[in-house]
Amino acid sequence: MSRSSLVVLALLLAAEPAVPPSEPHLVAGAEAFRAEAYDKALVEFRVAEALGSTEASWYAAASLLKLGRPEDAVEAFVLAERSNRAATDALLEVYRGQACYAAGLLICADRWFESAGSRAGPRLVPQLKALRGAIRDALQPAQLAPAIDGLLTRGTELAGTRPALAFAIAEEAEALAARSPTRHRQAEATALTARLAAPPPRGRR
């Protein structure tokens, strides 16, 4: 987590007379994250989340990535996005891309690296560019079909128990199918993604 994020959090605390109960945990999590105590950071962000902070969900996802749990992180990012789409920033998008990359979801990684690249600073841009190049090289047409098969199998397995993670996997399969010269199992991938997509908020027309 960046130093500026901590400053922002501190300013918010100072400016807000009635401090929300989640804020001390958010700050404690941020400090633990910066000290690389990711277990503690995850716990504090989860507590902040339970006390009503939707921002904390994004940071919890980043902590999961740092703890070497990329699939859990991908799942947490999906859930964080569903609860508060606007709370992300370029650095969190880089973390999200890294989680996707480590989980073997290359199109997902590419999407977030691309998004982060448009907002990142000059030190990060070349690294993101290199990563995107490696992803582009890895996505050869001949390997798409077995990759799609594997993703659909995994996505279907997880659909009942971990729908948010299954959704990310199904989205990856759908994106790969769109790139496949034969549109390999595209209809199945699209149907699975649609089935696992978050339901629209109630009352919205």
Binding site: L42, L67, R69
Partner: peptide, 11 residues
């Protein structure tokens, strides 16, 4: 439940 003993101990 997720198998993260370190975080569970912290909590």
């Amino acid at each position: 439940a997720r198998g993260n003993a370190g975080a569970a101990r912290e909590a």
